[in-house]
Amino acid sequence: MISIENLLTWLIALQTTYLENKQYLTDLDAAIGDADHGINMERGFTAVKQKIEATDHNDVGSLLKITAMTLISTVGGASGPLYGTFFLRASTACARKTTLTNAELVNMFDVGLQGVVQRGKARLADKTMIDALTPALEAMTQALENGASLTNILQAGTDAAEHGMQQTIPMLAKKGRASYLGERSIGHQDPGATSSYLMLKTALDVWGNEET
């Protein structure tokens, strides 16, 4: 069971994650984009942290909605509307809930991913964040169906996201800035897939040890 406090911990931990990986993500984006992905993500989650720490929260849906609106108005770039839409959709799946079961948590991620797909119109293997998120959701859904614990569900999702992220290296980018490189995009890991992997990895890090 995931509580509002657990969600807050995760969202706040994401700020640390993106702060620590600001240079790494920006360097990845410099290779196939415009060298701003780490800067964008750090700016967005620092704003989210400030916003959510300043208020009390009594439902998951509105916490995620505040997160979404803050990301939409601070991240910019392609990842702003994409992650913003992710959390906005996720929030509608959690409206008026005070806790999330494992199934509801996986559903939250799934609905978020569908929002990203709709907004960005990318397909699998276009070398974007959905190449990390899609396999992650498949793995989490599978683990859930097998009755796995929260830790094991998140472990499965994180492993699959990491694998998906690495799989973007040989891909030719067909969406976003990286697509302008054509063949030259091959051989580089996609920054958005990397930030998506980090999002799940952070969830595993902060929730993985909780007994649920």
Binding site: N40, I72, S73, T74, G76, G77, G80
Partner: peptide, 12 residues
Amino acid sequence: AGEVFTSPTPDQ
């Protein structure tokens, strides 16, 4: 105006 080389946001 967005940040340098970064799109402005929908609220703007």
